[in-house]
Each structure stands twice: as structure tokens, then as C-alpha cells.
């Protein structure tokens, strides 16, 4: 499916693109946009609705935990944020690989579009976790394996955002950020297995392939907020991709007009 994609970047450092090629280059982003435009509200609105339903249910309709008490409700925000922080970087890594191997012009745009919402959810995960830790564990922060590796993920996002926005100035075929995106993915299994491999203050995995160790009466709003935040995340990524494609289009057009 990538054979038809042009191997040239959207913007080149070599100067203005000739019109014929410009038309060719935007042929496939145009196909992407014809799907992305109607899809954005269809992801965003159900996402917001699910988040609102899940968070309100988690505040008022579920029982407290036998040990943690009411503070267990922070889970409904914390767990989706952790999932999206990690899924976001996985997305950056996959998109970066596609960019490096197939020179897919949209892959670099997708990777850059994921970075900011990914960093946001990594930050939300760290902050809500810190707030959750104080009443339960008795500490805002401890340098255990899980907390430290999640903080590393947040710093990786910040570094990626800096690197890729500098790379975008040079042209969209920015290999340095792509390689950084792939290498940084090594942290994702470390975060996941940190609670199993190392003794940590953070508890083990509650929800796995084998099922959940959370009682159904407490668990049920969690899939709502997780799905809701995931849909909203996808909508944000599409919005940012649309913005970047439109900005690139304007810039190419202005360059061409200047050269004519």
C-alpha cells in the first residue's frame, strides 16, 4: 500500500518545489485528509462523552477500596494516562520505523503529531500518581523502578519535541528524530516490566491478559475512561496532523508564489 507514495519529503531544503511535483506529493496526503477530516469529530465527541461518563461514575457511583479508601478513584484518570503515555511512544516508534524504511511522507507528520499529547498524558500519569501516592503510600515521590522509568519517558517526550521541531526546520525527512523515536522505545518494556522484575513501591500489574485483580464493582468505569481518552487522543493526533499538513501546504504555496 506504500508503493505509490512519493519518496520525496513534503518540503525539501533544496528550495521551492516545482508545481507538477507538488501536486503529485499532495495526492496521497489528500486521500488521508479525505478520511481524517470527517473522522476527527467522530473520535473526539464520543471520546469526550465516554470520559465524562467514566469520570463522573468513578467519582460518585463506585465503592471505595477496602484498604485505600476513597483515593482509589484517582485510578480512573491515572491508568488511562499511563496507557496513553506508553502507547503514544509506541506509536512514535512505529511511525518512525515506517519513515525510515519506506520514506512514508505522512509517517514523520504522524510521529510529530503524537509527541505533544503523549507528553501530556505522561505528565498527567506522573502528577496523578504523585497525588495518589501521598494518601496511600505516605509519599509524593520515591525513586523506585516504575516511577523513575515513567519520569524517563516524560523526559524522552520533551527531548523528542525539541529534536523534531528543530528537525522540521531542516525539512520533513528528519532522520535524527526518527532514530531517536525508535531507540527511545527501549524504555517502554522497562516501564511495563519494572514492577515484575524489580522490587518496587508501586504495586504489580492489576489488569493483564489473564484478567483483572480489581473487583468488578470498582473496575467498571475504568474501560469507559480508558476508551474515552484513547479516542480523544486519536482525535488530537488527527487535528495536529491536519494542522501540520495545512501549514506545509501554505508554506509550499508561498514559496512557489515567491519564485514565480
Amino acid at each position: 500500500m506504500f508503493r505509490g507514495w512519493p519518496s520525496r519529503p513534503l518540503r525539501t531544503a533544496r528550495g521551492p518545489l516545482i508545481p507538477r511535483r507538488a501536486v503529485h506529493i499532495f495526492a496521497n496526503p489528500a486521500r488521508f485528509l479525505s478520511i481524517a477530516r470527517p473522522l476527527t469529530p467522530w473520535l473526539g465527541w464520543p471520546g469526550l462523552l465516554l470520559i465524562a461518563t467514566g469520570l463522573v461514575s468513578g467519582l460518585f457511583l463506585t465503592p471505595p477500596d477496602y484498604l485505600q479508601g476513597e483515593s482509589v478513584r484517582i485510578m480512573y484518570a491515572h491508568v488511562p494516562a499511563a496507557w496513553l503515555g506508553m502507547a503514544g511512544w509506541s506509536g512514535i516508534a512505529v511511525a518512525s520505523l515506517m519513515q525510515l524504511i519506506w520514506r512514508h511522507p505522512l509517517a514523520a507528520v504522524a510521529a510529530r503529531a503524537i509527541a505533544v499529547p503523549g507528553a501530556l498524558f505522561a505528565a498527567i500519569c506522573l502528577l496523578t500518581g504523585s497525588i495518589w501516592g501521598r494518601p496511600t503510600w505516605g509519599t509524593w515521590w520515591e525513586w523506585d523502578g516504575r516511577l523513575t522509568s515513567m519520569l524517563v519517558l516524560f523526559f524522552l517526550y520533551i527531548a523528542y519535541i525539541a529534536l523534531s521541531s528543530a528537525g522540521a526546520e531542516r525539512g520533513s525527512n528528519d532522520r535524527v528524530s526518527a532514530i531517536f523515536g525508535v531507540v527511545g522505545a527501549a524504555n517502554i518494556p522497562i516501564i511495563h516490566y519494572s514492577v515484575e522484575w524489580w522490587r518496587t513501591l508501586h504495586q504489580g500489574q492489576s489488569i493483564g491478559l489473564a484478567g483483572s485483580k480489581i473487583d468488578g464493582s470498582i473496575l467498571w468505569p475504568l474501560p469507559l475512561t480508558t476508551l474515552g481518552f484513547t479516542l480523544l487522543f486519536a482525535a488530537i493526533v488527527l487535528m495536529r496532523m491536519r494542522a501540520m499538513l495545512a501549514e506545509a501546504k501554505v508554506e509550499a504555496r508561498l514559496k512557489r508564489m515567491a519564485s514565480e
Binding site: E70, S71, I74, A77, L127, I131, R134, F229
Partner: peptide, 15 residues
């Protein structure tokens, strides 16, 4: 409850 409200507020405002 202050902890829960703070965590929810950060999540909602940030998102």
C-alpha cells in the same frame, strides 16, 4: 477528597 479533586482537575484541565 482534596487529593481526588486535585488529580481530576489536573487531568481535565491538561487534556
Amino acid at each position: 477528597w482534596p487529593f481526588i479533586i486535585a488529580a481530576y482537575a489536573i487531568t481535565i484541565v491538561g487534556t
